[in-house]
């Protein structure tokens, strides 16, 4: 139980810090409407968020100019608002990706080098 609780807390904290990157990464190379984006994130163990988090976040990212949104109607379905990365969003994702990988490699280094400091 304690183990599950710690893991859940970790996921929440990590999600808070990486939400912007999660959304930008999910939109890399594709356009998605809200429900499709939500379903994609909910399929992944550590990125599942709710509607109440997703939509205001998308709106903020749109205001920041890193994503764009466009209403699209396909056939007889109801119109859906599709989101995609702007050039600024792609540039931001590149920066965040680089920092993310650096963080992971730093963490891996620490985990792989336990014991007395050698550097």
């Amino acid at each position: 139980m304690e183990k599950d609780n710690s893991a859940a807390k970790w996921d929440v904290q990590l999600r808070k810090g990486t939400l912007d990157m999660v959304i930008l990464a999910a939109l890399k190379g594709r356009s998605l409407y809200g429900l499709a984006l939500l379903n994609l994130l909910q399929k992944l163990e550590t990125t599942a968020i709710t509607e109440g988090t997703l939509y205001p976040l998308l709106d903020r990212l749109k205001k920041e100019g890193v994503v764009s949104a466009q209403w699209v109607q396909e056939g007889t379905t109801r119109p859906r608002k599709y989101y995609s990365l702007t050039p600024e969003g792609k540039a931001k994702l590149n920066i965040l990706t680089e920092r993310w990988r650096k963080s992971v490699s730093d963490m891996e280094f620490l985990l792989a080098n336990p014991g007395p400091a050698t550097f």
């Binding site: 809200g34 429900l35 509607e51 939509y55 109801r78 119109p79 859906r80 608002k81």
Partner: peptide, 9 residues
């Protein structure tokens, strides 16, 4: 947008 989402669900 929210209305569209709810009815899609």
């Amino acid at each position: 947008e929210i209305e569209s989402h709810i009815y899609d669900v």
